[in-house]
Amino acid sequence: MEKIITYEDFTKVDLRIGTIIEVNDFPEAHRPAYQLKIDFGELGIKKSSAQITTLYTKQDLLNRQIVAVVNFPKKQIGKFMSQCLVVGAVKEKDVYLLKPESNVKNGATVL
């Protein structure tokens, strides 16, 4: 087990549901990745990059709902500014995106 955190620590992480509305190749990335634009409803549209090209095609990702951390500081990746962190489960070297069981409102909080 990793470090034990408090409930207060957990509440600092703002996990939200968003829908991927645009997917582009990211040839400048060190490892194969996509550039994503994600609609978080009232929070607006945020960009992220994700190294998920081995499991997902651009068509698989378009209009897919995902879970992301939306309160990280922005991160410059080459010429691309990532504004959120898409989360997933890691199996070996692959990342499997987390998603709600059924469609929910963009921007919904994940508890």
Rank of each mutant, 00 (worst) to 15 (best):
I38F: 11
G78K: 11
A33D: 13
Y7S: 07
H30C: 11
M81Y: 09
V86W: 04
I77V: 13
D60L: 15
S49W: 04
P27V: 12
R31S: 11
K12R: 14
E42A: 10
V87A: 07
L97F: 03
L97C: 10
L15R: 10
D60V: 15
Q83S: 02
T19H: 02
T54F: 10
P32I: 01
V13H: 01
F40Q: 06
V67E: 07
K79Q: 13
G78S: 03
D60W: 10
T11M: 11
G41L: 11
A50P: 00
A33N: 10
V86E: 05
L43K: 12
F10T: 00
E8P: 00
G44D: 09
Q35M: 09
Q35C: 09
N63C: 08
E42M: 04
K74R: 00
S82C: 06
K47T: 08
V87S: 14
I17G: 06
R16G: 10
A29Y: 10
V67W: 04
D14M: 10
E28A: 13
K74Y: 02
L36W: 03
F26L: 14
Y56P: 13
F10Y: 14
V13F: 12
K75I: 04
N24E: 08
Y7V: 09
Y96I: 11
Y7F: 06
T109C: 06
Q76L: 05
R31N: 10
R64Q: 07
V70I: 11
T53M: 12
N24W: 02
I38Y: 00
G107S: 08
F26H: 09
K47P: 08
I52K: 05
T11C: 10
I20M: 07
D39R: 05
V86H: 05
I17N: 07
V69L: 14
K12L: 05
A89S: 09
E42C: 04
Q51Y: 13
Q35W: 02
V13M: 03
A89I: 08
E92G: 11
G78W: 11
G107L: 07
K58S: 08
K47Y: 05
G107F: 06
S49I: 09
A68S: 14
I52A: 02
E92S: 12
V90M: 15
K79V: 01
T109K: 15
R31A: 07
K105P: 02
K75N: 04
P100L: 14
A33M: 11
Y56W: 12
T11N: 12
Q51C: 12
K91A: 07
F26N: 03
R16C: 08
K99F: 02
F10I: 00
Y56N: 07
F72K: 06
P73W: 08
G18I: 14
I17Q: 01
